[in-house]
Amino acid sequence: MPLSRFNVVALLVLAGLCPVQAQDVTTLRADMIGQWELATTDRSKTCVVTLKSDTTPLGFKLELEPSCAAALPFTKDIAGWSIKGLGDIVRLQNATGEAVIDFSEVETGIFEGLRTNEGVYILQNLAAARSLAKSMDQMIGDWSMVRGNGQAICGLTLTNNDAGNDNFQVFLKPKCDPAVAAFNPTVWRLDHGQIILMSAKGESWQFEADDNAQWRRVPDSADPLIMLREQ
């Protein structure tokens, strides 16, 4: 029976003769060198981890900032890091090489890991994480929704109250336009540079920043809806 492409690749991996996978491991390992933020999904507890290229018998060295143990107690067991699986798992491990937590990349530069009975943790490039946190802070507060002619139709407040799944609570003010009141968003988040408002029914409205520092609903329309930060 002829070997399938999958079986050929599997045999090469087992024989240590698959250069594509080796390159993937090498690339990921190089990309991981540097400072990372280890955090809960809502970033209420954070820890800075510096992944190093210095080798150990079981992987590579790392440094944890002194406050890590208090913020995330399980980090007291972390003694090093390594690449596992087929080169797609970043492992923070104990002194014997066992996993304290394993991370998989969910989008470029963002890794997600699960600890049983504790929940999900995020590992993200430190500079990117702090940039996102700054952007989030700038979003918190009172906003107005206006039509393209400048007519205000609704007020709303974006909060940093955790609503789960990287979402935060949003509250509408009284006397909103019927269309906005019917939509009735309950949570919001920042996602790839967009403000996403979501209702309890699962509906969502997306807003993108335009050249005038306004947030315009997309896709655009002849009667645009714009979000303006209240002074």
Results as ranks from 00 to 15, higher is better:
127 A>P: 00
36 W>Y: 06
65 E>P: 01
201 K>V: 12
110 I>Q: 14
197 L>R: 01
129 A>P: 07
34 G>M: 00
32 M>E: 01
224 P>R: 06
182 A>I: 06
37 E>L: 07
73 P>D: 10
85 G>V: 10
216 R>C: 07
88 D>H: 12
49 V>M: 00
56 T>A: 09
160 N>P: 03
15 A>P: 01
187 V>S: 04
64 L>R: 01
212 N>V: 08
2 P>S: 09
33 I>R: 04
92 L>K: 00
108 T>P: 09
117 N>I: 08
48 V>Q: 06
59 G>D: 01
114 L>S: 13
224 P>V: 10
38 L>S: 02
104 S>D: 12
53 S>K: 13
21 Q>R: 15
120 V>F: 15
33 I>W: 00
155 G>E: 07
224 P>T: 06
162 D>I: 09
122 I>F: 07
138 Q>N: 15
221 S>Y: 04
114 L>T: 14
32 M>Y: 01
19 P>A: 11
138 Q>G: 15
196 I>M: 11
13 V>W: 02
148 G>L: 07
218 V>E: 04
173 K>E: 15
106 V>D: 11
200 A>G: 09
59 G>Q: 03
104 S>I: 15
166 D>P: 01
63 E>C: 03
90 V>C: 03
188 W>D: 04
72 L>H: 04
224 P>A: 12
167 N>W: 12
34 G>F: 00
8 V>D: 03
135 S>N: 12
189 R>I: 05
193 G>L: 10
115 R>I: 15
54 D>V: 07
6 F>K: 08
144 S>I: 03
195 I>S: 01
80 G>T: 06
208 E>R: 11
184 N>H: 13
130 R>C: 05
111 F>A: 06
112 E>R: 13
94 N>Y: 03
15 A>L: 15
149 N>R: 08
154 C>V: 08
94 N>T: 04
209 A>S: 11
210 D>C: 02
228 L>C: 05
77 D>E: 14
18 C>L: 12
119 G>N: 13
62 L>S: 02
132 L>H: 12
213 A>M: 13
141 G>N: 09
19 P>R: 10
180 V>G: 04
219 P>I: 07
18 C>E: 14
167 N>K: 14
68 C>D: 05
117 N>H: 12
184 N>G: 07
84 K>D: 12
220 D>I: 14
